[in-house]
Design a protein around this nucleic acid. Structure first.
Ligand SMILES: [Mn+2]
Ligand SMILES: [Mn+2]
Ligand SMILES: [Zn+2]
Ligand SMILES: [Zn+2]
Lengths: 148, 148
DNA sequence: TCCTGTTTAGGAATGATTACTATGTAGCAA
DNA sequence: TTGCTACATAGTAATCATTCCTAAACAGGA
């Protein structure tokens, strides 16, 4: 992507969000990344430019951008939240060794038929496919189940 | 399902796991549920029968059963882990209001083509589809995005 | 029955996230 | 341009799920 700070300020205005240097930097770091960073990752990346930045602000910013629809959480486990500013429909491959998350953009996955057998009053708004496995460097360490 | 405690002791033996009353009760509560409970839920359910039960033991048991392949984690957010002893291939619908998780068994979802564009040394071992939306009772409270 | 490695209970520790709050500032209007 | 006000920030403290640690209990095999 590589959005400039000016592009970002414009986008914030369009969305009715206040534009602050911290907020713009955090969003820029996220939108220009494909690594699905944690809040801490973003904090570490932006900190050098804004030494006063608080990790708290990163969390607050992510929830604000989240409820504006500019950022989504990606859950690969219950441990820590990972964030994604890639709004085009896509899916994820997760390495169970290093926890890396790779984007999958495969249009065949974007029009799955709605699932059968649901309560009829259930309103599905979106879905995502999560593939799991092991990346090249984690393959050998892939531990088999003990019993069974 | 409705497995008896004897069935469960047998299954543990088959898997090479020690059978203790606590362990069997925890697994029984989980395997006979479709609610994808948390560790705390299981603790609350088993506690009346085993007043000395420790929440710690629930966590330990779940990791043991997990590495034996009898139990899987279902992640619907980064907040708390939900557990599932339903080993038949299936998918989930998650209500974003009440966090309920409903099983989806739709065989059309069980043979998706492997995704394109991955590093060739990536080894996919499984995948799951997570549908999100709002159940009947949570529908009205479904809050729209602020900006954008 | 005895032995040994696993399991349990309980308490303490960890670590990500949230809550609280005083100060700062963006955006708007006079 | 200036001043106002609501929102944003930083720092600290609190929360809470999960993990760590350890002594005692115990399951399963010899
Ligand atoms: Mn992504
Ligand atoms: Mn399930
Ligand atoms: Zn890996
Ligand atoms: Zn609901």
């Amino acid at each position: 992507m590589n959005l400039s700070l000016d592009d970002i300020r414009q986008k914030f205005r369009d969305c009715g969000l206040k534009s602050t240097p911290q907020r713009a930097s955090i969003y820029q770091a996220l939108v220009n990344s494909t690594a699905h960073p944690t809040a801490e990752d973003l904090f570490a990346q932006v900190s050098p430019t804004y030494p006063m930045l608080s990790l708290n602000t990163v969390y607050y910013t992510l929830t604000v951008l989240g409820s504006a629809g500019l950022v989504q959480e990606v859950n690969i486990g219950h441990d820590r939240a990972r964030y994604d500013a890639n709004l085009s429909p896509h899916h994820h491959v997760i390495c169970q060794g290093c926890q890396d998350i790779i984007d999958v953009m495969d249009s065949r996955l974007d029009s799955l038929a709605p699932p059968t057998g649901l309560p009829k009053d259930f309103d599905i708004t979106s879905y995502q496919v999560a593939f799991r496995g092991y990346c090249g460097s984690c393959r050998q360490s892939q531990s088999p189940n003990k019993g069974c």
